[in-house]
Simulated scan of single mutants.
Amino acid sequence: MDSESMGPGTVRPGGRTARVRAAVLRAAGDALVEQGFDRLDLADIARRAEVGKTTVYRRWGTVPVVVADLLADMAEQSLPRTETGSLPGDLRANARLVRRTLSDPRQGPLFKAVIAAATCDARTAEALRRFYDIRVEEWAPCVRQAVERGEIPEGTDAHEVVRAVSAPLYYRLLTGVGPLRESDADRAADAAAAAARAGVYVRRGAS
């Protein structure tokens, strides 16, 4: 079975297939930022990408599938975690990466548009959940390592700690309370680390 007949994002295609996918996803991101989810159109995406409409319709079929593949590609392109040797350092590295992403002139508006789309389309919502599951799991080992070093209690929920780091930054992005500063990222990381040390994220029933 070749990559064209498989679900989008299930493989990392090469050659012309990769170029077509990259062009279409770039065009879809541009259109999503400019027009919003409700006005996305496969024919317009094909025009922007300079790709035949037949190719776009055959491979993706619907707008939600394109958006889901866009999120899959964003997850593939995300930078790996940084290990500093301490939980506060690792969480600050995570927070600063999130801050840089959300402050980017393209990525910030794109995330806002995708989150807005997820509120009205179940397939996009599921794709967004998968995207964040991948990113949270990428950084969860830094919390598990902190448990092993004795920095935080046994039974700490690594995923909840990582989510707690980025949540304040997304709040600032979505409410428009001001530009995201590095100090905001550090504050979010330090708060999550302090809460983890205090046992806030220990799972109930954990021994």
Rank of each mutant, 00 (worst) to 15 (best):
residue 2 D to S: 13
residue 4 E to D: 14
residue 4 E to R: 11
residue 5 S to T: 15
residue 10 T to D: 09
residue 12 R to H: 06
residue 13 P to K: 02
residue 15 G to R: 13
residue 17 T to K: 11
residue 22 A to K: 08
residue 22 A to T: 14
residue 24 V to I: 13
residue 25 L to E: 00
residue 27 A to P: 02
residue 30 D to E: 12
residue 33 V to W: 09
residue 33 V to E: 05
residue 35 Q to F: 09
residue 37 F to T: 11
residue 37 F to N: 12
residue 39 R to G: 05
residue 43 A to C: 06
residue 46 A to H: 02
residue 46 A to E: 03
residue 46 A to N: 02
residue 46 A to S: 06
residue 47 R to H: 11
residue 48 R to G: 09
residue 53 K to N: 07
residue 56 V to N: 00
residue 56 V to S: 00
residue 57 Y to M: 09
residue 61 G to T: 10
residue 61 G to W: 06
residue 64 P to S: 03
residue 66 V to G: 01
residue 70 L to Y: 01
residue 73 D to I: 00
residue 77 Q to I: 05
residue 78 S to M: 04
residue 81 R to W: 04
residue 83 E to K: 10
residue 84 T to G: 04
residue 85 G to D: 10
residue 86 S to H: 10
residue 90 D to R: 07
residue 90 D to M: 05
residue 90 D to P: 13
residue 90 D to H: 04
residue 90 D to C: 07
residue 90 D to A: 06
residue 91 L to V: 06
residue 92 R to C: 13
residue 92 R to M: 13
residue 93 A to R: 03
residue 94 N to R: 13
residue 94 N to H: 14
residue 95 A to V: 05
residue 96 R to I: 11
residue 99 R to K: 12
residue 101 T to W: 11
residue 104 D to E: 07
residue 104 D to P: 12
residue 107 Q to F: 09
residue 107 Q to I: 08
residue 108 G to D: 00
residue 108 G to K: 00
residue 110 L to M: 09
residue 112 K to F: 07
residue 112 K to L: 11
residue 114 V to N: 01
residue 117 A to E: 06
residue 118 A to P: 00
residue 119 T to G: 09
residue 120 C to L: 14
residue 120 C to G: 15
residue 121 D to M: 05
residue 122 A to I: 15
residue 124 T to W: 06
residue 124 T to V: 15
residue 126 E to M: 06
residue 127 A to I: 06
residue 128 L to D: 00
residue 128 L to F: 03
residue 132 Y to R: 03
residue 134 I to V: 15
residue 136 V to K: 04
residue 136 V to G: 02
residue 137 E to P: 15
residue 138 E to D: 14
residue 140 A to Y: 01
residue 142 C to A: 13
residue 143 V to F: 03
residue 144 R to K: 10
residue 144 R to H: 12
residue 146 A to S: 01
residue 146 A to M: 02
residue 148 E to K: 12
residue 149 R to P: 09
residue 151 E to Q: 04
residue 152 I to V: 13
residue 156 T to K: 00
residue 157 D to E: 09
residue 157 D to L: 03
residue 160 E to D: 13
residue 160 E to P: 11
residue 163 R to V: 08
residue 163 R to G: 06
residue 164 A to V: 07
residue 165 V to D: 02
residue 166 S to G: 12
residue 166 S to W: 08
residue 168 P to A: 05
residue 172 R to K: 14
residue 172 R to F: 13
residue 177 V to S: 14
residue 179 P to L: 01
residue 181 R to P: 05
residue 183 S to M: 12
residue 184 D to M: 13
residue 186 D to I: 10
residue 186 D to P: 13
residue 187 R to D: 14
residue 188 A to H: 07
residue 191 A to K: 14
residue 193 A to F: 01
residue 194 A to N: 11
residue 196 A to P: 14
residue 197 R to D: 01
residue 197 R to Q: 06
residue 201 Y to L: 08
residue 201 Y to N: 04
residue 202 V to N: 12
residue 205 G to D: 07
residue 206 A to W: 07
residue 207 S to K: 15
